[in-house]
Amino acid sequence: MARGQILQRRVSQLIGNTSHTKKWWVIPGSLAIAFCFWALPAGPGWQNYAPDWVSLILIYWCFAIPGKVGLGSAWLAGLLLDVVSFGVLGRYALSKTIIVFLAERLAFRVRIFPVWQQSFLILGLLAVETALLTLLGMTFGEIEFSYGRWVAIVGGALLWFPVYFVLRRVRHWARLP
């Protein structure tokens, strides 16, 4: 019995699963994966229809653990996205900061909603971001209005379901509140 318990502890130490420390690194980790998803090539002409994974992940953590993702880290994530996308610096930084700000404001009200209602809210948040990005893009050059971006927010809202369930598993696994 004792032997078995020791063995179990050994195994769990190796896997690092049952230790009671909170794995906060899953938040930046999930963001890093979102960056890679975001940068996936989508073939010429389809690029504009790609959903914004980074926003979805940021919004999830805002809703799940309110107050954990600060405006500063959102800004930093946006700036990184600007660097990765080779776009004008500061564009995504601004949009992600505003999205996180809005999501934090809504977080306490939204947590009790069922997922499908949350997805409508996501639609709204993504629409705000798209409007902002389009406006900034038109002001600072480079991009024009594209209908694809608006189709992409519907895709983003639908993606909320898998994102929500996967990240909830991750959150429980990482023993985050």
Partner: peptide, 21 residues
């Protein structure tokens, strides 16, 4: 506290965009 930080970061972003473009 949030809005003032938002304002600061917003100004920083717009400044960056301006400087970059």
């Amino acid at each position: 506290v949030l809005p003032t930080r938002l304002l600061l970061l917003g100004i920083l972003s717009v400044g960056l965009m301006f400087a970059d473009s």
